Computed example of a mutant assay.
Amino acid sequence: MSNPQFFPHPTPSTIAPKPPAIALRGFLNEAVNIMTFKKTALLVLFVTFGAHAHAADNTESKTIPFEIYNYATKLDIEHVISISEPANECAPVPVRMTYEDSYGERHVLQYQVMGTGCSS
């Protein structure tokens, strides 16, 4: 047998256990930090992809030359992709519609609509 003077073993009276509330609080704080990080990472991911998709949509309508509509314009609209918002004015304002024709080619057509700034 070993002599207790040379190899002291901790006894229950010398070890101070953490109260369960403090241990649980530390665990919960860590769990909340992980959840916050995951939520933030997802938010950044969605915002990045959303901004990229929005930028791609905007750059397409800006890089494709637009045609100005008149009554003699022959239209071949197979699928409307987007229509810009009219300006907040009480007057005719230009709006651009991006669409694909029956051949799958993309076009941008500018036409006039009444602005949204008129009160009833």
Rank of each mutant, 00 (worst) to 15 (best):
L109V: 12
V113R: 10
P86Q: 11
G26F: 00
E30N: 13
K39E: 02
T11Q: 06
G115F: 14
M1H: 15
V108W: 13
S84L: 08
D76S: 02
V44L: 10
A56V: 03
D76I: 04
C118Q: 12
P19I: 07
T40R: 06
T11S: 02
L43V: 08
I22F: 14
V80S: 06
C90Y: 02
G104C: 02
A87F: 03
E89M: 07
A87I: 06
T11I: 05
I34R: 11
A55Q: 12
A91R: 14
Y111V: 07
S119M: 03
D76Y: 06
G104S: 03
I81N: 14
M1Y: 10
P17D: 00
P65E: 01
T36G: 05
P65F: 00
T98S: 10
Y71D: 10
L109P: 12
T36A: 03
T98I: 06
N88H: 14
S120Q: 13
R106K: 15
C90G: 05
A72E: 12
R96H: 11
G104I: 00
I15D: 02
E105T: 13
A53N: 08
I22D: 15
P12H: 00
V44S: 12
S61T: 14
M1L: 10
I34S: 03
I64R: 01
K39I: 06
G104N: 10
A56E: 05
N88P: 14
E60M: 07
C118H: 15
E30T: 15
A72C: 00
A23K: 15
M1I: 05
F6R: 10
V108A: 03
V47P: 01
D101Q: 06
A51V: 01
A51N: 05
L43A: 09
E85M: 07
E67T: 14
H9D: 01
P20W: 03
C118F: 12
V32N: 04
L24G: 03
F37W: 01
S82F: 08
T59I: 09
V108K: 01
S84M: 12
Y111F: 15
N33Y: 07
L43N: 13
T36R: 10
C118N: 14
T63S: 07
T98H: 08
E100F: 12
R96L: 04
S84F: 07
S61C: 02
E30Q: 14
T73W: 10
S119E: 11
N88W: 08
Q112G: 07
L43I: 09
Y69V: 03
I15Y: 10
